[in-house]
């Protein structure tokens, strides 16, 4: 294809030079001073080569745009096939083909991960039933309790794995969700008394990925339960154009030097870690940022910590 492109370019430049020379000759013939004729010719040539260069680089700019979008995880980005430079459509087709294949591969991978997660949960469910059966048959409660905790930990990790895989490529499936409803559900899921929930605004709608938002809320609550001595309040409120969820706990709060680092992956503070990988709050932060939101951590005046998830209201 390159030689066709070069031949076309060569022809375009030839036409441009020819037209310019013709204009120059015509101007000289009409008695215009040669200096003016040369100036007009040069100007015309300049304009023509500019136009050719512009046309030539147009697909390159488009290519750069698409490459950047693909890099940002917008896998449905495609090059617009321009009709002008036919040869360049070959590049566009090749790029679009590549993008489609990457998109399919990632989609397959995500589906595989979802399926694997489901498959892991199935034996976990069996284990929980077996544990309760063992309990009834007189196995020491302390042992059963420890085993159950491990099972729940694996379950929580599967959750985080699912959420992580979604975040990795920015594959958000946004839907209108009510944060108050989701917060109530997160509390129920983790067995926390829902009377701690205080909704201070009407209509706490956000546009978010259900899996991710649920995972983030569950992680906020789980953090308070596991490391903060229990949830003392969950407040859902509106702050300007944002919906914010505060999860307040009864623990000792964060140490001052920990505060800036609590959202780092694998960070485990002085707060008792208890087998956790330290991914929970990091995930909350990533979910927040993926939705143009933010996560904050602070110590409350009356003691205990407050971790806030803030998302744009829709």
């Amino acid at each position: 294809m390159h030689w066709r492109l070069r031949r076309r370019l060569f022809a375009w430049f030839g036409v441009a030079v020819g037209v310019a020379a013709g204009l120059g000759a015509y101007l000289v013939h009409r008695g215009v001073s040669p200096l003016w004729a040369i100036a007009s010719t040069a100007f015309l040539l300049w304009g023509a080569s500019g136009a050719i260069a512009w046309r030539l680089t147009l697909p390159l700019a488009e290519l750069a745009r698409v490459a950047r979008q693909l890099g940002d995880g917008k896998l449905d980005a495609r090059m617009r096939v321009s009709h002008g430079a036919r040869e360049l459509t070959v590049i566009a087709d090749a790029i679009n083909d590549m993008a489609a294949r990457i998109e399919k591969q990632l989609r397959d991978q995500r589906e595989l991960l979802a399926a694997v997660s489901h498959e892991i949960r199935t034996p976990l469910g069996h284990l929980r039933v077996l544990l309760d059966t063992a309990r009834d048959k007189g196995v020491a409660e302390a042992v059963v309790h420890e085993l159950e905790r491990e099972v729940l930990e694996v379950d929580a990790l599967v959750d985080q794995l699912l959420a992580s895989s979604r975040l990795e490529f920015g594959q958000l499936e946004r839907r209108p969700l009510d944060v108050a409803v989701e917060a109530a559900r997160a509390l129920e899921r983790l067995g926390v008394d829902a009377s701690v929930l205080d909704v201070q605004a009407d209509g706490c709608a956000v546009s978010a990925d259900p899996t991710l938002l649920r995972s983030a809320l569950a992680n906020l609550v789980r953090n308070a339960v596991d490391h903060g001595g229990g949830v003392s309040a969950v407040v859902v409120r509106r702050a300007d154009a944002r919906i914010e969820v505060d999860v307040e706990d009864r623990g000792a709060g964060f140490a001052a030097d920990e505060l800036p680092r609590v959202f780092e992956p694998f960070f485990r503070g002085a707060r008792k870690a208890g087998g956790s990988l330290g991914l929970g709050l990091a995930l909350v932060d990533r979910v927040a940022r993926a939705h143009e939101g933010a996560a904050r951590a602070a110590n409350r005046d009356g003691g205990g910590a407050r971790v806030t998830l803030s998302l744009p209201a829709s």
Binding site: D178, A184, D193, V199
Partner: peptide
């Protein structure tokens, strides 16, 4: 009996 605005009602366990 607590009202959870926009969602429903809840009676605390304790």
């Amino acid at each position: 009996i607590r009202t959870v605005r926009g969602v429903g009602y809840v009676v605390p366990k304790d």
